[in-house]
């Protein structure tokens, strides 16, 4: 049975690879600076749509942490994002008008670019509102982390999504371009996450946080997944199977220890709940280009009318990675 299962997953992986090549035909090269990628660079892969306001801070955040090059798919933006990106010296940009959903929520494009440019590199695949926090990120760069991961023969690094939110209504403070989003959305839920293990893909399925608490309190099974594996030492045979939640081959998903120990892990601070959110939710609901009939956005829409405050007196205010590690949301593992 095991062998059949393995073979089925192998076929699935190959199908995803073929599919990524097929879907890549919709990508149109806008600017190619990939010749500037040096050996050993950490690469960052993004799919964006109308995220202009977020980009200045995002790029500077990851540049500061030592990302060498950004490879970006611009999915039909209309807010000047493309023009902005083309001017950046360390970005290579592809554009497409094709459907986000038809490209498995952008993952086909990402898989293509990862296979084409990421082979042999440490690759960070994120969304525009995700900010990676890892052990010692205040004193050590991403290449320092990847050097250790490689020396320890670790191929993938998990980072759970932590939803950040402001105190008070989301639209109370307007987010300006270039601003640190966590000046506004500086709070998070410290300890209400649930974990299930996926038997087929071996990844953990983590749910919880403010989204489960407020938007899915009556239907917790439908709450969005928070487990992510954004940082991988890529090989052209790898694929992301569903968002960055799970990879194939499935051994890459074993970013957790099963015998009582702790592996090193980080957090992706999720700057979703800002003043930009209501507009985004409305737009995404119209586009219907999101997972499971955009049910996540439907749930938001229903609740957003009464402008909910996600904050509680048990929320924690974000300080630094050591706080997240003390709370047990991430771990240094044996990196010291």
């Amino acid at each position: 049975m095991k062998a059949i299962e393995r073979y089925r997953l192998r076929l699935q992986r190959k199908r995803f690879l073929v599919r990524s090549w097929r879907k890549s035909r919709a990508l149109e090269l806008a600017v190619d600076r990939t010749s500037g990628i040096r050996r050993g660079d950490v690469l960052c892969f993004l799919t964006l749509r109308n995220e202009q306001v977020r980009l200045p801070y995002l790029l500077s955040y990851y540049r500061d942490r030592g990302v060498g090059h950004f490879l970006i798919v611009d999915n039909n933006s209309t807010d000047g994002l493309r023009e902005y990106l083309i001017e950046q010296p360390d970005c290579s940009v592809w554009t497409t008008n094709a459907g986000y959903k038809a490209a498995r929520f952008g993952m086909d494009w990402m898989n293509f670019l990862l296979g084409r440019y990421g082979h042999g590199h440490w690759c960070l695949t994120i969304d525009a509102d995700e900010f990676l926090v890892y052990p010692f990120c205040d004193t050590r760069s991403l290449p320092a982390l990847t050097y250790w991961l490689q020396a320890s023969a670790i191929r993938s690094f998990g980072a759970m999504l932590v939803d950040m939110y402001p105190k008070g209504p989301m639209d109370a403070q307007t987010y300006r371009a270039g601003q640190d989003p966590f000046e506004i959305a500086s709070w998070f839920d410290p300890g209400n996450y649930t974990i299930n293990r996926n038997r087929l893909y071996y990844n953990l399925w983590i749910q919880g946080g403010p989204r489960a608490r407020v938007f899915f309190r009556d239907a917790p099974a439908k709450a969005p997944a928070l487990n992510k594996i954004p940082l991988v030492h890529w090989d052209r045979r790898y694929v992301y199977a569903s968002s960055t939640h799970a990879l194939l081959p499935r051994g890459l998903n074993l970013v957790y220890d099963e015998w009582g120990g702790e592996k090193a892990s980080g957090c992706l601070l999720h700057a979703k709940f800002l003043s930009t959110f209501a507009g985004k939710a409305e737009e995404e609901l119209q586009r219907r280009q999101h997972y499971a009939g955009s049910r996540e956005y439907r749930a938001y829409h229903d609740r957003l009318r009464d402008n909910p405050d996600l904050w509680t007196r048990w929320s924690e205010r974000y300080i630094n990675w050591r706080q997240l590690e003390t709370l047990g949301l991430m771990s240094k593992g044996n990196w010291a």
Binding site: G158, M160, N227, E258, G260, G261, E262, G328, M330, W335
Partner: peptide, 25 residues
């Protein structure tokens, strides 16, 4: 201490990089 954290972990903690089997917690 780092090795201890990697091999024994923090008791009673279930998280993204520590998810022990039943009886190995």
């Amino acid at each position: 201490r780092a090795v201890e954290q990697r091999t024994r972990g923090r008791s009673g903690l279930y998280m993204q990089s520590r998810f022990p089997h039943w009886d190995w917690e």
